[in-house]
Design a protein around this nucleic acid. Structure first.
Lengths: 205, 205
DNA sequence: CAAGAACATGGATAAAAATACAGCGTGCGC
DNA sequence: GCGCACGCTGTATTTTTATCCATGTTCTTG
């Protein structure tokens, strides 16, 4: 169903207000903003918007409208970005984060409950897996499977490697011919499994 | 300032409710959820949370609390994902989107006003720029600069190419030796400039 | 042209929600 | 042992807000 121009205006106002202040306008605030002489004007517009499926309202509650597309939108998780993960990391101590990255659950295939985190990639050791210097890699805590890309603690530093488990002893492998490292995986602390990647602007590619 | 255990419980409840339903609980709803006999209990907790800086309240408004960290968090934009952009695209007609991608403004360096969109990458023509098949590329409408990666309309299909403008005639270049195409850029419709990349899970790398 | 949708006014009502005030017990630091 | 933050009860008041009814104007559209 298509919205009329006026209805789109109302919807835009709702969006703008909600984005800016975080709370939904009440009918009176809509009325005042548009200069309506009566609340009914605002109410009937909201009703029209609801009928056309643009918003969803819960009855008899203050400011209880939500945008229809927000209702079925994938939730967003804020994953903390760590420059590096210190050695004795346990669940209680939260290492200091260099900001957060917000990603929607679906595009990463994340589980909302699993504590994910992001790591800023340094160096070119995974360049052949098309992971560049400066990329942010999103990781999850879980058991690695064969060919997963994992974050591992090597010599007190966290680095990204491919986890290979082909029946024999599992080992870690860099994706760069300059790093022909084959490191037995048992002795190492696997700190996470890569589930996604975010490459931002402000860089050259 | 540290929160007490009870205050953290209240804050968690607020977070959970807000994430799930999109609207903030009122004092009565808090009261009922925790089984308080009086609204004042909820109110005083909210006051404590506000004093400690966990939430921000606007006076005399229903459901007008917002989380303090949400107030200064980077805004999130929902960029539509297009499989391909049709030829005669104009600002009025919105091509159908294959879902949306939510990214925070800062990590992409996006301008919130500029209408960004995402494109699902097909094929390996940009593999040497480390853009893989299945990646989602985020693009902005603006003039391309030298060495930018752009989406261009070639033979009715949208493809990703590197824009090269070294003083002479600008042209487009694929980042794959199997695609040695040099296409004069003038004759083509540049549909966007790459500003970021999101690589999701549910694929092998 | 009739019918309906969209858009608006004016006034009224009741539910929902924030706010206020007066207490009470417990633990903690000084 | 005094003050103070914390967590809560109980009652009352005021503001905010959603909702309803009756009515009128302009469009569009079959």
């Amino acid at each position: 169903m298509k919205l009329t121009a006026r209805q789109q205006e109302i919807l835009d106002y709702l969006h703008a207000e909600h984005r800016q202040s975080g709370i939904m306008p009440s009918t009176r605030e809509i009325q005042e903003h548009f200069g309506f002489a009566s609340q009914t004007a605002a109410v009937s517009h909201l009703r029209a918007l609801e009928k056309k499926g643009a918003i969803v309202k819960k009855d008899r509650k203050a400011r209880s409208l939500i945008f229809a597309d927000a209702a079925d939108r994938e939730p967003i998780v804020d994953v903390p970005i760590y420059g590096a993960i210190p050695a004795g990391y346990s669940d209680d101590t939260t290492p200091e984060a260099d900001g957060t990255l917000s990603v929607d659950v679906r595009s990463m295939g994340l589980d909302e409950r699993s504590k994910a985190y992001a790591l800023k990639v340094r160096g070119e050791s995974m360049i052949e897996a098309h992971i560049m210097d400066g990329d942010h890699v999103v990781l999850e805590y879980r058991e690695p499977r064969d060919q997963d890309i994992v974050a591992a603690l090597i010599d007190g530093e966290t680095t990204l490697k491919r986890y290979v488990n082909n029946g024999r002893k599992p080992f870690l492998k860099a994706e760069n011919p300059d790093f022909p490292d084959l490191i037995p995986a048992q002795e190492l602390l696997i700190q996470g499994v890569m589930v996604g990647l975010v490459r931002g602007a402000s860089r050259r590619w």
